[in-house]
Design a protein around this nucleic acid. Structure first.
Lengths: 240, 240
DNA sequence: ATTTGATTGTTCGGTATCGAACACAATTGC
DNA sequence: GCAATTGTGTTCGATACCGAACAATCAAAT
């Protein structure tokens, strides 16, 4: 039975904290199960909790023209949902949608604000993640400009794969089209092309990555660019 | 002769600081003239100074595939160049290019780090700007996905116009194409369309906005979305 | 087993943008 | 004044994606 004696968190951001700080923080953290499709923040809505994903992951979406939305960021156990809180803003500019269900630890905004101002280590980790998220969003901007659906889809699959720790995950073409901001037709064509090359397999809402290296080759360099930034930050941790 | 007795800064971020903090900061700030095309940071390079633009403005660019670049953010007197420093990172993930020449106040990274950790007000202002920059970048990501060249170009012109405090600014089609990540042909076509409708006038590197309202109507909603966020932040200042 | 709903596959004509290339016009330097 | 440089306008065929619509398939519920 896990819980009482468990010291390490499956959330890598929290895990980077000194053990002592982590333990005091843990008392305030509330474990919650997040279901696929759940909306953590609506755009322009007040932030009530910050979330530290364990095995779930969350899409950040920006809307244009009051309707269509595009994913600008994907956050899993390497980060936190609610970055604006760290910047002194309690309103989320993005919609946050649970992309893969699972567990997360959450903290009420008030408690977060308090702990955040007290803990140098928490600040360091959260700000570092904020920096990485910014890189991810910016790369997405350039990626949206230059790369074709197949490349961007491959990138999305790799990013997702990294966050579920499995070669298999559930996603429908319809939903993937929404994330990428394209028609389902485009996703359908791109996916069957990847299947032909035996890079992936899929059937009705489940995608399996067969050849990770091959998929990386098909994806645009944006995948590697962002991933390298994350890796670099984790190893050097802070740089400054 | 300006300088000695001048208390207000033409940089709105600094101007929002309490007078006392502003004065102590001013002693460390070094006025510099930034020329068009000057590169403040190369991507992945160490940040040596942070810049507070007065009447100049700067583009943040992200590269893909080791070559092509696209603009992800535009910063003028409302902000600061060197946001990563506020997040504890002294390396710029973006290239920062001076888009419109003019004056700026700059601060060595060491001095900035010191002042930043001391001043609650400076932290508040810089973090708020960081938040706004993030919104701008994310909106650019969605904009790149959904909107056509004409709309994005109109948005760019309006954003630029807001930062130069003039209806006229210097920009060549070639350069504008680089910023938008499209061919010059596309910019050429889009510009002549706007000229036909008498929204703008231009000749060899100089664009004049004739009908601001009309241009806003042509531009995508991304312009208004981002601008509203900036205005809201300035009036409520912090919210939280 | 049959129906129902969800998921995937395919087609159509039309538009935006691409890469490459060339012609022309305005400014600058000599 | 003339040449060189820079900036702008236009063309070509090709490709990626659009909106709309319809067909086929699978999975679960009755």
């Amino acid at each position: 039975m896990p819980g009482a004696t468990q010291l390490a968190s499956p959330n890598r951001l929290l895990d980077a904290l000194p053990r002592k700080e982590f333990r005091t923080l843990l008392e305030l953290l509330e474990p919650v199960k997040l279901a696929f499709g759940e909306i953590l923040y609506e755009s322009h809505a007040k932030i009530r909790h910050v979330y530290f994903p364990n095995d779930c992951f969350v899409s950040m979406l920006t809307t244009v023209d009051g309707g269509r939305a595009a994913e600008v960021g994907l956050i899993g156990s390497e980060g936190m949902i609610g970055v604006p809180m760290a910047l002194g803003v309690a309103v989320s500019p993005f919609r946050a949608v649970v992309q893969g269900g699972g567990m997360a630890l959450r903290l009420k905004t008030g408690a977060f604000r308090r702990k955040f101002s007290e803990s140098t280590a928490l600040k360091r980790e959260v700000f570092l993640f904020t920096h990485l998220l910014m890189i991810q969003i910016a790369q997405t901007a350039a990626c949206n400009r230059f790369h074709i659906v197949t490349q961007r889809m491959a990138r999305w699959m790799l990013m997702t794969c990294d966050r579920v720790n499995s070669d298999e995950f559930r996603i429908t073409q319809e939903f993937l089209a929404l994330m990428l901001g394209v028609r389902r037709v485009g996703v359908s064509a791109a996916m069957s092309r990847l299947r032909e090359r035996e890079l992936i397999a899929y059937r009705r809402g489940t995608v399996t990555i067969l050849d990770r290296e091959g998929l990386v080759a098909v994806a645009c360099g944006c995948y590697k660019t962002v991933k390298d930034a994350y890796i670099k930050a984790q190893t050097r941790d802070g740089d400054s």
